[in-house]
Amino acid sequence: MVYLSFVYVVVLVAGILLGFSEIDFPLYIQEVLALLLFIIGIDLMMSEDKAEKIKNSWKSSMRLVMATVTGSIAGGLIAGALTGMDLKTAMAIGAGMGWYSLTGPYLAAKAGTFAGAVGFTSNFFRELLTIVFYPKMPDKEAGISAGGATTMDSTLPIIASFGRDLSLTAFMHGFVISILVPLLLFILG
């Protein structure tokens, strides 16, 4: 997953450079975004083994989901107020909860290029900060909330290294957040 994150950044930079070069390039963002959401829908429903894991640590995961959603949206609101961004867009950026590859393109299509750029990079930074600082966090269970949607894939190995119970909770938390992110983007974006 860390390798994939690197690939995504390289692709983003390549796109920016091509954009600077003023070469005309056809974009089909709406159509590709629709295809991505279709694939995400299939992926969510095909994950039977994920559903089994989810049953195991229900209560703590749901508490963390509530914390992640409220903290991220409220954080987006505060950051939006501090930076002078449109508050609804700022809440949508926060609601990305680390899922930068969806939040960036979605907000670019819905709220404009600048919002999409902030949506991508801020959620990418969130994943990086979680990878770097999770081992230093004194409360490892609460630290799962910091990772947002990434706790079911890219940050899961780091969390899992601190205990099997934590990994189950993190997985379930990330799975539920991954369902909520597209819905919240629809509402707030």
Binding site: G15, L17, L18, V32, S101, P105, A108, A117
Partner: peptide, 9 residues
């Protein structure tokens, strides 16, 4: 999608 976002940026 990410390439398109980069190009747009």
């Amino acid at each position: 999608l990410i390439f398109s976002l980069g190009y747009d940026m």
